[in-house]
Amino acid sequence: MSETEEITTHRSTVAKWTHGLSQATGSPGGGAGAGVMLAIAASLTSMVAGYTEPDAQRADRLSAILAQAKDRRETALQLADDDATASQAFGAAFKVDPGPEREEAIREAAIGAAQSSAELGDHAVSAIEDLAWLAEHGKRALIADVVVAFGALRAAVAGARTNASFDLATLKSSGSTLEQIQASHPRLWASVQTLTAAIERIDACTASIDDRAAPTDPAGTS
């Protein structure tokens, strides 16, 4: 087993993991990178929530945000490793000799990869409201960290959206049209639209607090 194949988010240092990402292997690749970005967003969410001192009315919500962020970080790291595995299957499918067996291998790998991306996207979307709440009620001195978390979350959502869409479109290589793909995989198809809307929501949240996070930027003070 090569050095790159042994790399995982749980066992590798950041230096080793990003070195693996830099290699021309695709495992880990962009999807795994999106998972790590979600883990970063979850970690920053947890940090800001941990610094925040709630009043009695908001203690339960803050406690829930902390618990969800902790679970989301662990889940995101596992999904990053799962995506790396899915990438290997994808690459292997395209190496099969032309014919029905190759088409079936591509179909299965594409669906599996799209499902992996959609699952990551679901977890990322669930993080938006927690960060939006912290933007409003979290410790004000950490508003810049909230914006950084939104940036990482946006990268995770955009990555999940693009990968899911690309993976679905790859089914055309096995003879399906886009109309047939939509009819056969409506949930995965709809997830792309959901993630597109999530990006817009994140952008709106970030724009609404930019004047507090970057007060010296003329664009934020106009």
Rank of each mutant, 00 (worst) to 15 (best):
R140M: 05
L168G: 01
G112N: 15
G31E: 01
L195N: 02
L66V: 09
D83M: 11
S174E: 07
G30K: 01
R187Y: 13
A135Y: 05
A42H: 00
E5H: 14
D83G: 02
A86P: 00
A198E: 02
P54S: 06
P28Y: 08
A144S: 14
V36Q: 04
S173K: 15
T75A: 13
A156H: 04
F150T: 00
L120S: 02
Q180G: 14
A155R: 04
S165W: 14
L77N: 07
T170P: 02
I181S: 00
A89S: 14
G33Q: 01
P98C: 03
G220D: 08
G220F: 12
A144D: 12
A164G: 02
E136W: 11
T18S: 10
A89D: 11
S87E: 10
K139A: 07
G112H: 08
K172I: 04
R58V: 09
L38N: 00
A109V: 11
L44T: 01
G30R: 00
D60W: 15
Q68I: 15
R161F: 10
Q23W: 12
E53N: 08
T13K: 05
A110L: 03
A24E: 15
K172Q: 14
H185F: 07
D130F: 04
A32N: 01
E101Y: 08
A156T: 10
G220Q: 07
T216H: 14
A42P: 01
Q78D: 12
G220P: 04
A59P: 00
A41D: 04
T162I: 15
R212H: 10
R107T: 06
A213W: 02
T85G: 02
H123S: 08
A49T: 03
V146R: 04
C205A: 15
A144T: 14
D145M: 05
G151N: 04
W189I: 05
T45Q: 05
A41G: 09
S43G: 14
Q57M: 12
A110I: 07
D130K: 06
M1P: 09
A197V: 11
I106W: 08
G159H: 00
K139G: 01
H19P: 02
P28K: 03
Q182F: 06
S184N: 11
H137W: 15
T194P: 07
G220K: 06
V96A: 01
P218D: 06
V147H: 04
L195K: 05
D122S: 14
T52N: 06
T194I: 10
E104S: 11
G35T: 00
K172E: 11
S126K: 08
H19I: 05
E53M: 15
A41M: 09
